[in-house]
């Protein structure tokens, strides 16, 4: 078992941002600083997500990816607002290894086939932003803003059939809360998915990861807030942060109930768990 620990960096303009339930984005600083720290701590992969791209209809990540590639030698998964093959090409050319899609796949599922045909399954990850509603799991688009008619399991089956190499599932209900991933959702995914999958949303402690691994077998776990706030807590320096709403950061406070989660500690835990 080699479960990847994947810091997920949400990007708005040139800033790292983080919200709660995909809303109320707070500016946290220069994404490269965070990425470098996670690289040094032993991250297995980095996710860059342009979270306003879908809304503004353009992806803004290529210069950040290029910049990151120069001194961070890790697999990079990037996405947000990708609409066509040319954008896929531009992102891969700048140094990303794989791309992910949500909105474009929902609006026009054929794009999955097209990308698979041109770049192979291994390059394409389909992203699902899932919300619980009347005990059903429904997919959303445009970074959780727009409801769709896609129900989780039927959409997964379609996405797999069309050739997605991996799937990343975000629990909108848990995102940014630090309350752990939705275990009912994890079980459902583990029962229904054939392709490898990454779980994202809510994870802030090793105990939560343990609970998660006892009911599902993801190929990766994506973590945002818990890592970002631990890093800010440890090494806050005003000059590391650029423009935007930095009033919160200046207070140098940790946020809500996030403890100190370090990648190295998660790795040690995983080593022990799978040694048995």
């Amino acid at each position: 078992m080699n479960i990847r620990i994947i810091p997920k960096l949400d990007i708005k303009n040139q800033n790292l941002v983080k919200g709660i339930n995909l809303e109320g984005l707070r500016v946290l600083g220069d994404p490269r600083k965070f990425a470098e720290t996670y690289y040094k701590e032993g991250a297995d992969e980095i996710i860059y997500h342009d979270v306003v791209a879908s809304l503004y209809q353009r992806n803004n990540l290529t210069s950040l990816i290029k910049n990151t590639s120069e001194n961070i030698f890790l697999p990079m998964l990037a996405g947000g607002g990708i609409k066509d093959i040319n954008e896929v090409e531009a992102i891969l050319k700048s140094g990303a290894d794989r791309i992910f899609l949500n909105t474009a796949a929902i609006d026009n599922p054929n794009i999955i086939d097209d990308i698979v045909k041109k770049f192979g399954s291994s390059t394409l990850v389909v992203s699902l932003e899932v919300i619980k509603s009347d005990n059903k799991f429904i997919c959303r688009k445009d970074f959780g803003r727009e409801e769709t008619a896609k129900e989780l399991v039927s959409w997964i089956m379609e996405v797999e059939m069309r050739g997605a190499g991996e799937i990343i599932v975000t629990s909108i209900d848990k995102d940014g809360t630090g309350l752990g991933f939705d275990l009912t959702l994890a079980e459902k995914l583990s029962k229904n998915l054939k392709v490898p999958y990454i779980l994202n949303g809510g994870i802030s402690s090793i105990k939560q990861i343990d609970d998660l691994l006892n009911c599902s077998n993801p190929s990766g776990i994506a973590i945002g807030s818990a890592l970002h706030y631990s890093y800010i807590d440890q090494s806050f320096k005003k000059k590391d942060f650029m423009d935007g709403n930095i009033d919160f950061l200046k207070k140098n406070k940790n946020y809500r109930n996030f403890g100190k989660l370090k990648i190295s500690n998660i790795k040690n835990y995983l080593k022990k768990k799978f040694k048995k």
Partner: peptide, 15 residues
């Protein structure tokens, strides 16, 4: 064969 029984042919990750 994966541990949960489903077939897999795609190796992505660290070995």
């Amino acid at each position: 064969k994966k541990q949960n029984g489903s077939n897999t042919s795609f190796n992505v990750g660290w070995n």
